[in-house]
Design a protein around this nucleic acid. Structure first.
Lengths: 213, 213
DNA sequence: GTCTATAGCTTGATAGAC
DNA sequence: GTCTATCAAGCTATAGAC
């Protein structure tokens, strides 16, 4: 059964997502959001309790989808290994590949969401709490899978390796244009095939280095 | 000759740095900054042209120091190799070790600065431009050193590897508390010796994986 | 569900006395 | 350099007609 959603509510969420992604939570007013959504200011408070509630709903909407598709990707990898553990590369790919597929389905909206996540993840005020709230159950499942693939690894190495992965991943999908400037145009933030070819290999090598005796 | 600095101006910069780091540029008012600095609001506009100018001066103050000490660290590594190229590990260590030393000299203030950098780096609005403005000359020198250490590496692999490093580095030094929550206390954001042991090894392995034929 | 109108407050920035 | 006082604008949020 498809979830019934109000088109206005969705338009508000889309507008809020785009503006929060660009300017941050405090950098955007409800008025600017509703102007982009082409609806009256007061409708924001009809559909949501407050600005903060609107932000939380923006975070939640795609977090649920993201957690679902990543979990499916991990399940698929594990079902291909009924008797042994998947490799580190396969597990990291199951963590990153779904992001590329979501981008392929609707680049603009998912880019906004990933930009928002990158800023939340880097925020001392919200990073620890919000990333934990929305993504911890899934991340813990991935960490368990990695532990099985790296049986000699101790917890500290595993968690720090994941942390390095998290930083590289969120910055990369934030598409800030930084690498475009630095490389003088040789690399493009939006070039997803370049990322697909390189990130899992780079990250898996890091995990092996730290987690293999 | 020591640079003459006004104590009030420095107190304003310190207060602004701490608050911008915690809440972001838009999340903080000039009044809050001046309240923390224990000075009148109007003094902000005596010492700085505008809120934005104050922000720029916060960014610049420690960027100059950071670029200087990192450059010295790279020079030191290279002067130990008059005839051959330093290793990838040595170069990455010259990039990360100075941050740990600055933290050891004044943990609180440098932590605020690194938290600010992490948020700027992840911002689509400012990340590309500001990181380029303040850090590009230094980063380009490090990339040239890495190119010499990895002679078969093509530019794209090199720049993407640096980008993954940048994400891991800025998130790690932002000390958001995320890894504390995720690991259930097994790892601590503020545990610099854990970072020192792990980050250069993780990152250098990634560089080698991508940049070695 | 959508609008007008507005309350109550905070913002960035400045003028001018001392 | 430091203060008081203030402005014009923008802010979140709500009340109430339709």
């Amino acid at each position: 059964m498809a979830k019934v959603t109000h088109p206005t509510r969705e338009r508000i969420l889309d507008a809020a997502e785009a503006l929060f992604a660009q300017k941050g939570y405090e950098g955007v007013s409800v008025r600017q959001i509703m102007s982009r959504a082409e609806a009256d200011v007061s409708l924001a408070y009809y559909h949501f309790k407050s600005k903060r509630d609107l932000f939380d709903q923006v975070m939640l909407r795609r977090a649920e989808i993201l957690n679902e598709v990543r979990l499916e990707a991990l399940d698929a990898v594990e079902s291909r290994h009924p008797d042994d553990a998947p490799t580190v590369e396969e597990i990291i790919a199951a963590f990153t590949q779904p992001l590329l597929e979501l981008l392929a389905s609707d680049h603009e909206k998912w880019t906004h969401y990933f930009q928002l996540i990158a800023q939340v993840n880097s925020s001392p005020e919200w990073g620890g709490e919000l990333m934990t709230r929305y993504f911890d159950p899934l991340v813990k499942r991935f960490i368990e899978a990695l532990r099985a693939a790296l049986p000699d690894c101790d917890d500290e190495d595993l968690y720090w390796s994941y942390h390095f992965l998290s930083g590289a991943l969120t910055l990369t999908f934030a598409e800030t244009g930084r690498i475009d400037n630095l490389s003088g145009g040789a690399c493009k933030s939006s070039d997803m095939s370049s990322i697909k070819e390189r990130m899992p290999a780079f990250i898996a090598a890091g995990f092996r280095q730290l987690c293999t005796k």
